[in-house]
Simulated assay, not measured.
Amino acid sequence: MPIRHRLLAGLVAVLWGLNFLAIHASLQQFPPYFLVALRWTLIAVPTVLLVPRPQVPTRYLIGYGVGFGVLQFAFLYSAMDAGMPTGLASLVLQSSAPFTVLLGVLVGERLTRTRALGVIVAVIGLVIVGSQRVGGAAWWPFVLTLCAGFGWAIGNLSSKLAHPPKPLHLTLWMTVVPPLPMLGLALLLEGPQRIADSVTSSGSAWGAWSGLLYTCVLGSVAGSGIWTWLMTRHPASTVAPYSMLVPVVGLSAAWIALGERPSPVELVGCVVVVAGVLLTSRTPAPPIVRAVAIDPGEDAAHREGTTASAVLHQ
């Protein structure tokens, strides 16, 4: 991968890592469910007006929107609102990687030894981090963040099964799914009065709206756009490991901006989780194909049959 593309991958990791600070700022003003609805609405409206609908089955579009847009962010925002440290949230959310591997097995994907080891290592790391959350009220935000990672995994699986010809269109149209269910949850659980107060009050308004715009424009549109562009030009195994810089940026930014300092045990757990996720993202080496001599007539027939088969499967 050229150095320019590597820098772009690193830029995305920085944008996504700082995303957690932006979410933290927005939660100082808005209740979590309403904030999720607001975030996706700001992207969904221009998407419906300007972006063609992706040519994918509706069930996978809805599955992607429910998993990635509803479950992930409803649980993540609730966890951070309930006290999950901003930096640790960026780390625990990476549980989506082992969850994705395990869900993939259910739809017939092969679980290699390396990926199985990665799942085990990541789980051990999460247990180490979670052990510091046991007791008092700290465990519940941790569990909510794990649920967010599981929601992300459902979104990953749905987007993979969709086989979108234009992945960015699917990513943008996914945002059409969450606004109504999230607004319904917000009205039911947070109430119209709290929602109205969050919009009209001026307590942390500047920081909250700035954080919301950051998550929409830089975190979602710019970050996802660059990432999708890179994934279409390079093997996933080359690009995906750069996502492991996200918790590094998230933990560092929270340390600097918010004074959050993970305990030594939590830092050890962070390293173990990152190692596990890197293992789960490894792509197995392709099998070695030996060249054999083929009769010219037989080769032509083989090519014709292969072409017909390809047409039938398109």
Rank of each mutant, 00 (worst) to 15 (best):
W173R: 03
E190D: 06
H169W: 11
L168W: 08
S210A: 12
S204K: 12
L170P: 04
P164D: 12
A205P: 00
G203R: 11
S204G: 10
A208D: 07
G184T: 15
L188F: 15
P179C: 14
Q193G: 06
S202Q: 15
H169D: 14
P178D: 04
S201R: 06
W206H: 03
L212Q: 10
S202G: 13
T200K: 00
L188G: 07
P165C: 04
S204I: 03
G203L: 08
K166L: 09
L180W: 13
H169R: 14
P181L: 09
L170Y: 05
L187R: 08
S198Y: 09
T175K: 03
G203A: 13
D197S: 08
H169V: 07
T171L: 12
M182S: 10
V177N: 01
S198C: 13
S201K: 01
P164Y: 10
L188D: 11
L213F: 14
I195Y: 02
V177I: 15
H163Y: 05
A186R: 09
L161G: 07
T175E: 03
A162E: 01
P164E: 13
L172N: 07
K160V: 02
T171D: 06
L187I: 14
I195D: 00
D197M: 03
Y214P: 00
T215K: 04
G211W: 00
S204Y: 15
P164L: 09
P164M: 10
K160S: 02
D197L: 07
T200N: 01
W173L: 07
L188P: 03
S159F: 09
G191I: 02
R194E: 14
M174F: 00
E190T: 03
L183E: 00
L189V: 05
I195F: 06
S204Q: 15
P179Y: 10
L183T: 02
T171G: 08
L185T: 03
W173H: 12
W209V: 05
T215N: 10
W173T: 05
V199P: 01
P167K: 11
L187V: 13
P167R: 11
A208R: 06
V177D: 01
V176W: 00
L213C: 07
L168N: 10
T200W: 00
R194Y: 10
L187M: 14
S159Y: 05
K166F: 06
H163C: 02
S201N: 09
G211C: 01
G191R: 02
P164H: 11
W209Y: 15
L172W: 03
M182F: 13
G203K: 07
K160L: 05
S204H: 15
T200H: 01
Q193P: 00
T171Q: 12
S198N: 13
A196S: 15
T215E: 09
P164N: 11
S159D: 10
G207R: 09
G191V: 02
P192V: 13
D197N: 07
V177K: 01
E190N: 04
A186P: 08
G207P: 00
A186V: 10
G191L: 04
T171F: 05
P178N: 07
Y214A: 04
S210V: 01
S159H: 06
D197E: 12
L161Y: 08
L189N: 03
L187S: 11
T200D: 01
S159Q: 15
A196C: 07
M182E: 08
G184V: 15
A186S: 15
P165D: 08
A208P: 02
L188H: 14
T215G: 05
L170I: 08
Q193I: 10
T175D: 05
S202V: 14
P181T: 11
S198K: 10
